[in-house]
Design a protein around this nucleic acid. Sequence first.
DNA 1: CATGAATGAGGATTCATTCAT
DNA 2: AATGAATGAATCCTCATTCAT
Lengths: 194, 194, 194, 194
Amino acid sequence: MISQSKLENKRERILLAARRLFVNQGFHSTPTSAIAREASVANGTLFHYFNTKEELINTLYKETKRSFFTITTAGVENEKNIKRKVRLLWYNTVKWALNRPQDFLFIQQYSNSPFISQLTQEDISEHIGFYHDLIDQGKEKGTLKDIPTDLMYQLTTYQIYGIINYLFQHKEFQNNSTYLSMAFEFYWESIAKK
Amino acid sequence: MISQSKLENKRERILLAARRLFVNQGFHSTPTSAIAREASVANGTLFHYFNTKEELINTLYKETKRSFFTITTAGVENEKNIKRKVRLLWYNTVKWALNRPQDFLFIQQYSNSPFISQLTQEDISEHIGFYHDLIDQGKEKGTLKDIPTDLMYQLTTYQIYGIINYLFQHKEFQNNSTYLSMAFEFYWESIAKK
Amino acid sequence: MISQSKLENKRERILLAARRLFVNQGFHSTPTSAIAREASVANGTLFHYFNTKEELINTLYKETKRSFFTITTAGVENEKNIKRKVRLLWYNTVKWALNRPQDFLFIQQYSNSPFISQLTQEDISEHIGFYHDLIDQGKEKGTLKDIPTDLMYQLTTYQIYGIINYLFQHKEFQNNSTYLSMAFEFYWESIAKK
Amino acid sequence: MISQSKLENKRERILLAARRLFVNQGFHSTPTSAIAREASVANGTLFHYFNTKEELINTLYKETKRSFFTITTAGVENEKNIKRKVRLLWYNTVKWALNRPQDFLFIQQYSNSPFISQLTQEDISEHIGFYHDLIDQGKEKGTLKDIPTDLMYQLTTYQIYGIINYLFQHKEFQNNSTYLSMAFEFYWESIAKK
DNA sequence: CATGAATGAGGATTCATTCAT
DNA sequence: AATGAATGAATCCTCATTCAT
């Protein structure tokens, strides 16, 4: 049916428009009217799909995180050893960010924002389990350094953010496999047991 | 003269009030009227000292960064070797953050914010030279890994942010010297040449 | 036919839902969407039966008034003398209000409201004739005081509103026949010629 | 000082404008922007003096009620007997309403409105004591009928509303002392012991 | 310098009403 | 007849900034 796809279309268009504008201007500087205009829908339509601007932001955050998680963990389970798993995860993550800079910037900007409600954070928290499990496995096998799991997760996350931001500023390295390889090795050495 | 100190006093009070409120509620959710109230000055007084709200935030950012730099680099020059220099810098930084969480959170929140104008960033950029020089020295002496200076600076910065945020969430480790020592060693190993 | 009764059903459900909500929250604080929800019909359905929100309220007012008139005047013609007629009218009115507080409150609230159009008021005005005739009869027979008919009607109406509102606040008297009898006598004495 | 009077002026102008518009259109149909325009102040100025539209309404209600009470009870204490007291109160009230129809209509319209907060009602409740005391005195002296004080207060209030509304519709009687006298006697007989 | 009343543009949200299905 | 998505005008309120005192 046409109507069904059209409807989905509007909701989707609003979310996409919102992300585009939020990344560029921050959501405080993005009026809902601008989002509606960018999505080519009426102002009221936005509120038909999302009760408040905050709900829109949280929905966007959740959907982006979920998509991120699905994409970046794809195939990781099938890798044979820890290093290969970590490498795949690392490359998946970096590529995801380079392919969808808007999504990455959105998550990075808002993951610590007070606008992301506690409920939303909990909705997402399942993902963290995956990373913690992987770190625990690595520690058990003696492959990873023996530091607290949550600390390692934290440091790891920040380090990947660091790399990605660097690549955003240095586009010339984005497709340089030697460079990426070096960056990964730096990362790996920082967490692997010697 | 009393009036002189009083004036300085008001400017100072406004800056302190602003930081307190910005950290808790963010820049956009903090009306200038709230800052004035928190600082116990009249609404208009705020605009005597700062032409716009944005100027206030930039001033605050610059002063905080400068203070941060002065405090955290104190004594580093006098240390004999790279590891000692890096260690002192690391400890200074961590302690500074734990002593002035508001300042740290403020910098962390706003360092990538669009409110911090380009001009302000340039005003601060001199500091970066200090870190780059240190990294270059380390690389020359063969103490630090041979990866691009700016990349190492970036990763290093993010890693320290990571540690500090971790300590904020785990107050029980803040005065645990064994723990801090472990964290530093982890950090050091990630940048030192084997 | 089922469909016919169903339709009537919907119209009726909308009217009932509207009254319930209008009494509790007032006309302006009751969105048509809330009425539709309360009546379990779609938003657009409401506009099938009533062209505008205002038409809905006028219809409701007219139907309620008509029902009120029919019920409260029942049997009055058959009473032999003025006092008995007035007493029956009085009791009918009080009982009607106590049995259908929503209806009473609705009429009271909206009888002077600007939402009730002139047309609606005229549509209802025939009822007033009944009361005026009764008063005129009473005056002719020397039973009622000799004050202008419309003034007496007005004062009488307000006094009954007063009693009913009092009984709403003092439920303990609602079934106390001694009390009701006293209230009626007070009422009667205020209009009867001595 | 000019500024002082000017400021008072604006607050006052807003209240007056609000009353004017509320009486004509009801406050749901009166946007704050219209009030501001009518008062010749900026939109924001209204919110400088009243935090919300509701606060404005409640303030207006309180001030009007207070003024009503002061004016209508003036001199009543000095009258010698109950009938004279009641008569003065009655005439004061009727005259007040005829002189300031806007005020009367405003109070009548909103005294049962959900917009008048409980707090406001309590703020006003002291006035009721005055009337109750007067009724009690009358009952003790055997001048007034022996019906519950609060019931008599209620009926009395409604009856006066009735008279006033009647006079609004029949301007020809407003200055007819014979007519007014008759109306008062009707009132008095309804509450006086025979 | 200091004050705080005054401004008015801007923004989130509501809601009666329409209309394609 | 029934639906409910879509509309956009209307409204309350916020807030940075100005300015007379």
